[in-house]
């Protein structure tokens, strides 16, 4: 996954103590199947997704993951998607202490 770097920040690296808690889940998008109906964006309970400005090969606007840390893997996006283009999975719990 690509990571957007924050421009012009005083601290180039976030300190380890302020590391946000790991996301509970992840959404996967198949961009070429999407028809841009935006149901996944509207019905995501934690507002992980937003309609982006990018287009796919057929010219439909695509949803984008804007708040990946909020995703809890509930798969509501996958349930609503009429085109089988998106689904969410819950991340497996890591054992405490193990990286």
């Amino acid at each position: 996954m690509e990571q957007d770097s924050e421009p012009s920040n005083d601290n180039p690296k976030p300190s380890k103590s302020e590391k946000p808690p790991a996301a509970k889940g992840q959404a996967f998008i198949d961009e070429e199947r999407c028809k841009g109906c935006s149901y996944c964006v509207v019905f995501c309970p934690t507002e992980v997704l937003a309609m982006g400005g990018r287009l796919n090969r057929k010219g439909y606007h695509l949803p984008e993951v804007v708040n990946p840390e909020k995703c809890n893997g509930c798969d509501m996006c996958g349930l609503f998607c009429p085109d089988f283009a998106i689904f969410g999975v819950r991340n497996k719990k890591k054992k405490d202490g193990g990286e």
């Binding site: 149901y39 009429p82 085109d83």
Partner: peptide
Amino acid sequence: WCPGCGVGTSVN
């Protein structure tokens, strides 16, 4: 099916 068609969701 058209973009946003409810049939797709029902098949899902």
